[in-house]
């Protein structure tokens, strides 16, 4: 039993590094999605990728690095705040756009160029 714990303790920094790096890559993918996707409503989904899985992986890596301390508790609190507030903020932006009459592009979109749907800059 203590051997198993010992092995887990040796593995911990590596798992933390993998979590951190994959979290960073997923945040970058989400950011590139916000650039590449064609209109406002589809960009919301790319931002959602960053808000959920990217946040979770980066914070998980940091918690694994810090071990069971007050710092890891604070990091978990940061994650809890982010996961509670990000859907509310996303819904607020989407609802404001919907109420203001911004129409989404529906149907099938192939190979969109990033700024195809140019609206009037309000």
């Amino acid at each position: 039993m203590s051997d198993l714990l010992h092995i887990l303790d040796i593995l911990r920094p590596y798992v933390a590094g993998i979590a951190l790096l994959s979290g960073g890559v997923i945040v970058l993918i989400g950011a590139s999605g916000v650039l590449r996707l064609p209109d406002f409503y589809t960009r919301l989904h790319a931002a959602g990728v960053t808000d959920t899985l990217g946040t979770l992986l980066v914070l998980l890596g940091l918690i694994l690095l810090s071990g069971f301390t007050l710092l890891s508790g604070k990091l978990a609190l940061v994650g809890l705040f982010l996961l509670l507030t990000s859907p509310a903020a996303t819904h607020a932006v989407a609802n404001a756009a919907h109420k203001a009459g911004l129409k989404p592009r529906l149907g099938t979109i192939q190979n969109p160029s990033p700024d195809e749907a140019k609206g009037d800059a309000s």
Binding site: G24, L28, A31, V34, L35, F40, A47, A89, A97, S122
Partner: peptide
């Protein structure tokens, strides 16, 4: 990696055609 994605967000913030794109970029 995080700095690079922040830079990409700044690009969207400057280019975003609608106000809501900009708000989304600031939030992200």
């Amino acid at each position: 990696l995080l700095m690079a994605s922040m830079a990409l967000m700044l690009v969207r913030l400057l280019r975003g055609p609608q106000l809501y794109d900009r708000v989304l970029a600031v939030n992200s």
